[in-house]
Design a binder for these strands. Sequence first.
RNA 1: GGAGAGGUGGCAGAGUGGUCGAAUGCGCGCGCCUGGAAAGCGCGUGUUCUGAAAGGAACCCAGGGUUCGAAUCCCUGCCUCUCCGCCA
Length: 423
Amino acid sequence: MLDIKFIRSNPQLVKEALKKRNLKFDIDSLLKIDESKRLLQQELDGLRQKKNQANDEITALLKDKKKPDVKIKQMKEIADTIDKLEAKIKTINDELQYLLLTIPNIPNDALPVGDARNNKIVRSWGENPKFDFKPLTHIQLCQHLDIIDFARASKISGSHFVLYKKDGARLERALINFMLDLHTKQHGYTEIFPPFLVNRKAMIGTGQLPKLEEDMYRLKDDDLFLVPTAEVPVTNIHQDEVLEESQLPIYYTAYTACFRREAGSYGKDTRGLTRVHQFDKVEMVKFVKPEDSAQELEKLVNNAEKVLQLLGLPYRVVMLSTQDLSFSAHICYDLEAYSAGMDSYLEVSSCSNFTDFQARRANIQYRRLSDKKLCFVHTLNGSGVALARTVIAILENYQQADGTIAIPKALIPYMDGKERITK
RNA sequence: GGAGAGGUGGCAGAGUGGUCGAAUGCGCGCGCCUGGAAAGCGCGUGUUCUGAAAGGAACCCAGGGUUCGAAUCCCUGCCUCUCCGCCA
């Protein structure tokens, strides 16, 4: 969430930011609400002062064994006025807080302005594979090798769920272990295994709520949500905490399944593994000092890239444009892996700097060493990486003429030394 | 799920209706002392809102209620602990 003081003193900047995101939001009326709230608050404070003074007087009278009846009668009236005013302010403040929770983060000035077509390719890595036969899609390959059973997954759970079998299941597990090992052993992250169900407060903290509720799986009886990403539980680890500057930066990595309703996205990527309701992902989350966050994002992207490099998957790094940027993000790079069978680039990672936007919502502060002041940390996170689509790229890029799949070198130790997926 | 106990400042812990934003101890900071340190002594030590400032207001898990007045009494919720039940 944005600081109301920041909005108050930079209304034009906020308006322009919203315009870049192609969002309509009435900042002027927000500021009017803020103004009227503050005026009422001052009025209330004045009345409370009177009340506090009168209470002192009543106490003094009682001490002198005098009757405070007259004073008490006056007080009753003031108390009534205070009650009414408090109710009024609560209504206004609730509205103000809700509005503040629905304003997205301010995009970085470096981002291309516009929709996804304006996304900027920052760099590319690797050569797209060439085949002397027509490469199959992962759907055809899985069918042939019997390593993913879409039909039965659908029978059990519905469409867009996945049932991995045999080396398909094994590949999934191998990838998770490979990525966690890489980030913990090579990149300095601390491994976390968080809850897969989180409460409403956590979802608000990272920015999924209140705006995206219909995209989330929710357990109505308990008001819990299935995590759409490990970002939610892991970032909220330090919710309502004050960290010491010496603790920063904090790097966490976590595997979770991710659950997304993908409401309204039917018709897009309808087949196979591209868009599914449940997928596995290893996530990286950072808590850093504000002055370090830009540089920390670059390192985070490099950590995610390393996964694809070690897997030998060609990819490109894309800087998202202002309208493609997620609600909480200030700047975001996507990694898109090339997949031969579908001949397309698949988004397998999003790496974002949220600046103090999530920290303010989730109330994650640190005590600055220089002046002992409380400041909000900056949070970042990135997929490192998302599995279902990475599996597509592995299957499609490593397919052989005989329909088998070569296993990327880095994964062989995680597959018990196996070098091929065969029927 | 049932029964009970409890949630107070960085920590421990007092406070059961009025002068309590909160005793005391520990910790931390500054100073004195010392060759230096420890001990000792003295002073200080939460956050937020508002205001140019002086000041004012709020906060003792959260939300309601009683009262002129609530950390303190009542209700609801959340969380923690103990016992019982159930259970991978």
